[in-house]
Amino acid sequence: MTTYDVESGDQVHPGQPVTVDRYTAGARLNHWITAISLVLLALSGLALFTPSLYFLTGLFGGGQWTRTIHPWIGVVLFVSFFGLFVRFWRANLWKAEDGTWMARLRDVIGGHEENLPEVGKYNAGQKVVFWAMSILILVLIVSGFAIWDQYFAQYTTIDQKRWAVLIHAMAAVTIICVWIVHVYAAIWVRGTIGAMTKGQVTGGWAWRHHRKWLRELVSKK
């Protein structure tokens, strides 16, 4: 059996309760830099997206500062997310059980884990979030450069900029929706947030939500 579902640093500690190392300090730091960047980008972006949220420019020191700083935060996010991508992409490859999991989305939403197939480190929902984030961030950075007029105005035509600004807005709306799903899932599934704060989850959490991953870790020991 292949083991690319297990990432470096993942480890089981037997005991009462069992604890499982899920994210290394590096991965957590990497995640939170990305997370903070994404939140700042959403706030500064939404400020310029609709007049009703223009007041958010106040958080960044006014309109000029918001316009100046937004693309730079975007660069930070891109670089930071690239780190996450390198860490996580293998474990996010689509597997046979992911199709079954997706087909039983009704049970997922209802919280009936017993009807779902055993999944590895990430379930199909998490994988969709991962790949959606990856693609959207790529779209956002490319379209973002096309409208970063302070430095790159001469490289695109006005019509290309019009497309870029439309695509940038649509991709931004989509990624905010994906982000809401991501954050909501972490809150709804209790015991998840500790994975990104302390780096650990309980054995029961791993048994309930990522049993295949837990079995793999145990068999590896």
């Binding site: 309760p17 054995g203 079995r215």
Partner: peptide
């Protein structure tokens, strides 16, 4: 608690 017990049993 059963989930935790199952994990303990497994490990």
């Amino acid at each position: 608690p059963e989930d935790e017990a199952n994990a303990e049993k497994l490990t």
